[in-house]
Amino acid sequence: MREVFFMIFSIFTVLAALGVVVSRHAIFSAFSLVLAFFGLAILYLLWGTSFVSMLQILIYTGAIVVLFVFVVMLLDLKKEETLDSAKTGPLVMAGLSVWFFSLLILRALNRATYFKSTNVEAASDIKSISTLLFSKYLWGFEILSVFLLALIVSACVLARAEYMERKADQ
C-alpha cells in the first residue's frame, strides 16, 4: 500500500516540478512549486519522518514560496514579460537528459534490495534530530551559523549598496 502511495506521490511531485519549469507565467510556476513542495512533504511522511515533513511545509511552502509570490505580485508582470514561446532546442536537450537520467535511476532502483542493508540512522522526531545535530553533525551546525551570518551580510551589501552611494553623494 505504501509503495503505491509512494509511486503516486513521487509522480505527482515530478509533474509539479516540471510545471515549475514549463509554465509560461511566473505565478503558475510559483503555484506549481507549492504543489511540488507538498508532494515532497507527503513523500517524507511516507518515509516516516513526520518532523521533516512538517518543516518542509512550514518553511518551504509557508515562507519561501509565499515570498516568491509576493515578489512576483510586486513586480507586476505585464503580458510581454511572460515567456511567449518556449524554444524547442533547450526543451529537446532537457528531455534527453531527463530520459537518460531516469533510465539510470530506474535501472538502479530495479534491484533496490541493496538499500535496505545500508544502515542510515533514522531521525524522525525532534529529539533524535537535535541529538544528532549537537553531537554527530555539530561541526556542520557551527559552520552553518557562520554561513548564515555571511548570507545576511551579503544580502545587505547587495540591497544597500545603492542607498549608501546615494548617501555619499549628498
Binding site: 553533525y137 556542520g140 559552520i143 555571511a150 548570507l151 551580510v153 551579503s154
Partner: peptide, 16 residues
C-alpha cells in the same frame, strides 16, 4: 556535508 557547506560559504560572498 562539511565540504558542501564550506563550498557554499566560499562561493556566496564571492558572488557579491
Amino acid at each position: 556535508i562539511i565540504l558542501f557547506l564550506a563550498l557554499e560559504l566560499m562561493s556566496l560572498p564571492t558572488y557579491v
